[in-house]
């Protein structure tokens, strides 16, 4: 009971700080802006493709989210422990009865709330804009696609909030944590896919492409998120590049979701283990 109060207290303060420091505003405006841009640009050709406009926008938005959501998640979380250590408040907090695990869970929930608000508001406004412009289409399937996109975006964000906190717990300085977070984003979101594409080109449809490659794509949280969303959209949705795998995956699509959950578990476990080693 008192543990729950402590978690609620820290989570509330984290969220309040994110509001006061304009992180909430910045995250929400960014996601709203990009989502609206895609809603107006990306839903255009739906008439010819016979795919409902919501699904079409969701397809392009899922690709964009892979870049934006992890970045925002890392920006919100990289400071969470290293910053408190640097400012001297961590020793104060850890002198109180709060457990380190409680502190981590609380901060995680606070950061996730920031992300959830940005996703719900940003993508919600974009969905309303699409419906306002094109109507719902022949059936409401687009709504399901859209809700799936928002829910998995939050899960993807949770993975990167967890990773950001693990990074933060491993650094004694916020500057180091910031640099490591940017590096992690580049590695997981940009370089990983580039490396895989390069390998495929070199392999020319050989053994690597047929056997290991699909699993390597699925192992990346960003790719798993995108595949999970794309694979369940109408077959008429235009997709390209690595995402072609969405319709030829050697595993049931639930595996992509399992990958995300596994990443979340690993990230949070790493954060807790690293936080236990901190001497404030």
């Amino acid at each position: 009971m008192s543990g729950a109060i402590r978690i609620a207290t820290v989570a509330t303060t984290e969220f309040r700080l994110a509001v006061r420091n304009r992180w909430v505003l910045l995250a929400t405006l960014t996601l709203t802006g990009f989502a609206l841009a895609l809603a107006f640009l990306g839903s255009g050709p739906s008439g010819e493709l016979k795919v409902d406009p919501l699904t079409l926008t969701a397809a392009s938005l899922s690709t964009l989210s892979v870049y934006l959501v992890p970045l925002i998640a890392l920006l919100v979380s990289y400071d969470s422990l290293a910053g408190e250590l640097e400012r001297g408040t961590l020793s104060l907090v850890l002198a109180t009865p709060i457990r380190r695990t409680e502190l981590l869970i609380a901060k995680f929930l606070g950061h996730l709330a920031v992300l959830a608000l940005a996703i719900v508001v940003g993508y919600g406004i974009a969905a309303l804009a699409v419906i306002e412009r094109h109507g719902l289409g022949a059936h409401a399937a687009g709504l399901v696609v859209w809700f799936r996109l928002m829910a998995t975006c939050l899960l993807l964000g949770a993975v990167f909030v967890g990773l950001g906190m693990a990074v933060s717990a491993s650094c004694r300085q916020t500057g180091t944590a910031a640099a490591l977070s940017v590096g992690l984003w580049l590695l997981l979101v940009v370089l990983y896919d580039l490396a895989l594409l390069g390998a495929i080109i070199v392999d020319r449809g050989g053994l690597f492409t047929k056997t290991i490659f699909p699993f390597l794509v699925l192992a990346n949280p960003g790719d798993a998120f995108r595949l999970f969303n794309l694979a369940q959209m109408d077959a008429g949705t235009p997709i390209a590049g690595l995402d072609g795998l969405a319709h030829s995956l050697p595993l049931p699509i639930g595996a992509a979701l399992a990958v995300l959950v596994a990443w979340l578990g690993a990230a949070l476990s790493a954060a807790v283990a690293l936080a236990r080693k901190i001497t404030p």
Partner: peptide, 25 residues
């Protein structure tokens, strides 16, 4: 405990800090 160097978050108020730590304790 009161450490030698402590910088509470600038965006919070005194009341909020006291409320925060009272709940933790």
């Amino acid at each position: 405990y009161l450490p030698e160097q402590v910088a509470f978050p600038k965006a919070l108020t005194g009341t909020e800090i006291i409320t925060h730590f009272a709940r933790l304790k």
